[in-house]
């Protein structure tokens, strides 16, 4: 342990560490604004900053393929989906005073307590552990693709089946209501509980 500390220089950060720290502060700040701001659309936009910061952290950890996947999927599509969801549920554009529920102080206590406990445990456990970022790149597209299609083919294919199931499920969830409404409109208008035509995700 003392040898490791001596070889790496205790409390003398390298350039990568300084960059990681600065990007990490920006990421954490954006995440905190995301969960605390009163303006719902701003919350989604700050989430872009947080997820983009995590992509930069992946790049600093030499996992470049995952960084670009993060940019493509999270920043590209998930945030757009969330913005569409906010718009379709008619989220207020300005400040909404009831964005936080009544138990936010309990939530703050739980989050601060778990943060303190986890930071203590993690720092104590990995006090003398260094990541060796020199040498061959760990997460290039070539390396990731080779390991993914040599050792992880079966989970990869199972994941494609899962994605198909999620796609079909999302279509069924959003479509069944339209069919049920059309049926109801044809048979008896404004009967809110047609038991035969209810989707499984609905209340009863």
């Amino acid at each position: 342990m003392t040898l490791a500390a001596a070889s790496h220089g205790f409390l003398s950060p390298t350039g990568v560490e300084i960059a990681f720290l600065l990007v990490g502060i920006v990421t954490l700040g954006a995440a905190v604004v995301t969960v605390t701001t009163k303006q719902l659309v701003h919350s989604a936009l700050w989430l872009v900053v947080a997820l983009g910061g995590i992509a930069v952290e992946y790049l600093l950890l030499t996992a470049e393929f995952i960084a670009w996947v993060q940019v493509l999927i999270y920043v590209g599509s998930v945030v757009v989906l969330l913005l569409f969801g906010l718009m379709l549920t008619k989220a207020p554009i300005g400040r909404s005073p009831d964005a936080d529920s009544g138990n936010r102080w309990a939530a703050l206590v739980v989050a601060a307590g778990s943060a303190a406990a986890l930071v203590w445990v993690v720092v104590d456990a990995f006090r003398a552990t260094w990541i060796d970022l020199d040498g061959p790149v760990q997460g290039s597209t070539q390396e990731s693709g080779r390991s993914l299609f040599q050792y992880w083919v079966l989970p990869f294919e199972a994941l494609s089946v899962l994605l198909l199931a999620a796609l079909v499920g999302a279509i069924v969830l959003s479509r069944k209501h339209g069919a049920a409404a059309a049926e109801r409109g044809a048979v008896a208008p404004s009967t809110p509980t047609g038991p035969a035509a209810h989707a499984p995700g609905e209340d009863r």
Partner: peptide, 19 residues
């Protein structure tokens, strides 16, 4: 790079999400 940097950052992000 010290392993504590990414570990602590991910802990803090997780607790932010928990809040």
């Amino acid at each position: 790079m010290h392993l504590a940097y990414p570990a602590v950052l991910s802990v803090l992000l997780f607790c932010t999400g928990l809040y």
